[in-house]
């Protein structure tokens, strides 16, 4: 069964809130990690609600609204979110208050808002949507799992459409922790980022359709040759001409991960246009939602922003975008979108 991406919304370190533009200008990294280019929240959220919401919830709500408005979908049959860290700010607030006040005189607000499904629940309340509401939280598989559940539900005739999103926030405190880890080390490490991307998926194609979602596969700690074999199989199944394909890879500056990307670039994707996105989004558990947004734009606009190009020539007709992301060599995901 065909599944179409009919609406997209992304709040990120880049100016992505309008789908009419596509990364014409680039916000360069300032400081140790990528900060969000904050949208004018008041245009999307009533002041009374805004006051209570943490930043990650605000950005999540705004990106979900942009995707729904874009698609015209009002009450999705399912709301699925993915997040690696959930609501980091509220979790930290409660942890610090607990320590400072020695477990006394605590207020519940940050505890309540620290749950991973706070955003999914908030979107449901905002829409008055009583439908299926799920939140996946497995590191580099978080957004992919939400997407997979939506695909299975649509293909299994349980639902006709779904709102699917991936969100994560980065904080000063959390980044301080990450900088002690090899993956994020100043030398040969990734730069942490954040963002929230939502997508309206539907069975029906319409005049606003960005792309068709063809394939999604995840691999946990795969054997060395497994990814390449799987890529070849997907290319064959969907009759992908690699010279008409943009390959969006999760290059993040970490040498051990870079190897795998380079290997594929120099073999199966030798004829393809290779692109990157973490130079714009930073590294985070649900960065593939940024890639998913970019891939949708690439296919609809039939262009690739210069800031994403790594190597090869941009095909005159871009028929497919292949997304390959990995996290710490453990979680690998392959996503294929078609024009």
């Amino acid at each position: 069964m065909a599944i179409y991406i009919n609406g997209i919304g992304l709040i990120s370190p880049q100016e992505t809130k309008s789908n009419a533009s596509f990364l014409e200008e680039v916000n360069v990294l300032e400081g140790d990690y990528f900060k969000i280019a904050e949208p004018p929240y008041k245009e999307y959220i009533a002041p009374r609600e805004l006051r209570r919401m943490s930043r990650v919830i605000r950005n999540g709500i705004v990106s979900a609204k942009i995707a729904l408005n874009d698609s015209g979908l009002e009450n999705p049959d399912a709301i699925l979110t993915g997040t690696g860290l959930g609501c980091a700010t509220d979790t930290e607030k409660f942890l610090m208050a607990m320590s400072e006040n020695k477990e006394s005189l605590l207020t519940p607000t940050s505890f309540i808002q620290s749950t991973h499904n706070t955003l999914g629940g908030s979107i449901a309340i905002g829409l008055g949507c009583h439908n299926y509401n799920m939140t996946y939280v497995n590191r580099g598989f978080s957004f992919e799992s939400a997407l997979l559940d939506a695909i299975l539900m649509i293909n299994g005739q349980e639902i006709e459409n779904a709102l699917v999103g991936g969100f994560d926030e980065m904080t000063e405190n959390h980044n301080k922790l990450l900088l002690t880890q090899k993956h994020y080390a100043k030398e040969n490490g990734a730069v942490a980022g954040q963002g929230s991307g939502f997508f309206a998926l539907e069975k029906q194609i319409n005049e606003n359709t960005y792309a068709e979602l063809k394939e999604l596969e995840t691999y946990f700690k795969p054997e060395d040759s497994a990814i390449e074999e799987k890529v070849l199989q997907i290319l064959k199944t969907h009759d992908v001409n690699t010279s008409e394909c943009v390959v969006l890879m999760g290059f993040n500056g970490v040498p051990v991960e870079q190897n795998k990307y380079n290997e594929l670039r120099d073999s199966v994707f030798l004829n393809s246009c290779i692109a990157q996105y973490k130079n714009l989004s930073g590294e985070y558990y649900t960065s593939s939602a940024f890639a998913f947004w970019a891939a949708s734009q690439i296919l609809k606009k039939q262009s690739l922003p210069e800031c994403m190009l790594v190597s090869g020539n941009v095909p005159s007709t871009i028929k497919h975008v292949f997304i390959y992301n990995q996290f710490l060599k453990n979680e690998h995901s392959l996503i294929l979108l078609a024009k």
């Binding site: 690696g84 860290l85 959930g86 749950t115 991973h116 499904n117 999914g120 509401n133 799920m134 939140t135 996946y136 939280v137 497995n138 590191r139 598989f141 978080s142 799992s145 997979l148 995840t218 946990f220 700690k221 795969p222 558990y285 453990n330």
Partner: peptide, 25 residues
């Protein structure tokens, strides 16, 4: 994070075809 115990579970039991974690309170 929430993925840690799941991934250790997968390693311990030798399960690797698919893993994920859910958190809806």
């Amino acid at each position: 994070d929430a993925g840690d115990s799941t991934e250790r579970l997968a390693d311990f039991l030798g399960i690797k075809d698919f893993i994920t974690t859910i958190s809806t309170a």
